[in-house]
Simulated assay, not measured.
Amino acid sequence: MPPEPAPLAGATWPELTDRRPLVLLPLGSCEQHGPHLPLDTDAAVAGAVAERSAARLADADDTPDVLVAPVQPYGASGEHEGFAGTVSLGQAALELLVVELGRSLLRWAGRLLVVNGHGGNVEALSRAVALLRYEGRDAAWWPCVPSGSDAHAGRAETSMMLRLRPAAVRTGRAAAGPTDPIERLLPRLRASSVRAVSPSGVLGDPAGAHAAEGERLLAGMAERLAADADGWHVGEDGRLGGRAAQPARAVREATR
């Protein structure tokens, strides 16, 4: 039987010899999340979704070999650099980072799945994964986007952090920002920055957030991620998900 999913960082090299695991790499950011959420919100969510989905895969019959890599806490967050605390790698550096991590990791692992917690990473992530796949490496990425989520530091992210790290949420400082759909905000965001659109950094309304909703959102994403990993259909942009293009056993065969 394959070993249960475990943190990659806790393994020793002999324990990984002759294995071809699926490695989940959570990718977050260090950026402002309004006056009430911590800077590592995206990293915390991505890490939790990766761990929960790995546990679901391990609990299934005929389980694949799954490892969860340490969270990569920095991403491309240039749109948030108008706020203190934001630390951004930039698009070019993030792309190179993912490429080199993939090249190194896939020398011994069977598959790499980057679990992305920050929308600003998508451009660099898509290019990096496309290059890895062009080079013959089996990599993909998957977005942590809760169903019905608002744009940034609103009810969804506040609820998830109330579930994951309630002590880190400054509930008394929470306030609404612009609540327009992200499609309407994007032109202004691209032309200026988040700060020009929302002085607080919030895009949405955290009112009504609660831990029970956060649990529901996290569980839903973990379930979808586990199902997509089991099907392993990778789109042209490297994104994992959608209809299954391979048998459900494909991920198990590749990670034995």
Rank of each mutant, 00 (worst) to 15 (best):
E213N: 13
A212E: 07
A227Q: 12
A219T: 13
G235H: 15
A227E: 14
A196N: 11
D230F: 03
E223N: 06
D230S: 15
L203N: 02
A209C: 09
D228P: 15
P199E: 06
R224I: 01
R195L: 15
A209I: 03
A211V: 01
G208I: 14
D228Y: 06
A212F: 02
A219F: 04
A211N: 03
A229R: 11
A196I: 10
L217A: 09
A229L: 14
A227Y: 01
E215T: 01
S198G: 12
D228T: 14
A209V: 05
G235T: 09
P199H: 06
G220Y: 02
V234S: 04
A227N: 11
G220I: 06
G220A: 08
D230R: 14
E223P: 00
H210Y: 05
D205H: 11
G235P: 08
P206T: 15
R195C: 08
R216M: 12
S200V: 07
L225G: 02
D230Y: 08
R224T: 10
L225F: 13
A196P: 08
R224Y: 04
L203R: 00
A196Y: 11
S198D: 04
V234Q: 05
A211D: 00
E223M: 06
S198T: 10
E215S: 03
A209E: 03
L218M: 10
L225W: 05
E223G: 10
G214M: 05
H210R: 12
G201F: 03
R195H: 15
H233A: 15
W232P: 05
A226M: 12
E213V: 05
S200E: 10
G231M: 13
D205V: 13
A209L: 02
A211I: 02
R195N: 09
A227F: 00
S200R: 09
D228I: 09
R195S: 11
A222F: 08
V202S: 01
H233L: 10
A196W: 13
G208F: 13
A211Y: 00
A212R: 00
S198N: 04
S198E: 10
A227K: 02
D205M: 07
G235Y: 10
G214D: 04
V234D: 02
A226Q: 07
D230G: 13
R195Q: 15
V202L: 09
W232K: 04
L218G: 01
L203F: 09
A222R: 04
H210F: 05
A222E: 05
L225P: 06
A209F: 00
G208C: 14
L203Q: 07
W232S: 08
G235I: 10
G208E: 13
G208M: 15
R224W: 04
A229E: 06
V194H: 07
R216N: 08
V194L: 15
A227W: 01
A219I: 06
W232H: 08
H233K: 04
G201K: 02
E215A: 09
L217W: 01
G214Q: 02
R216E: 12
L218R: 00
E215Q: 13
G231W: 11
E213F: 00
A227M: 05
P199D: 03
A211C: 11
A226F: 06
L225C: 12
D228S: 14
A226E: 07
L218C: 12
A222N: 03
A209M: 04
G208V: 12
D230L: 15
V197K: 02
S198I: 02
P206C: 11
A226I: 10
A209D: 07
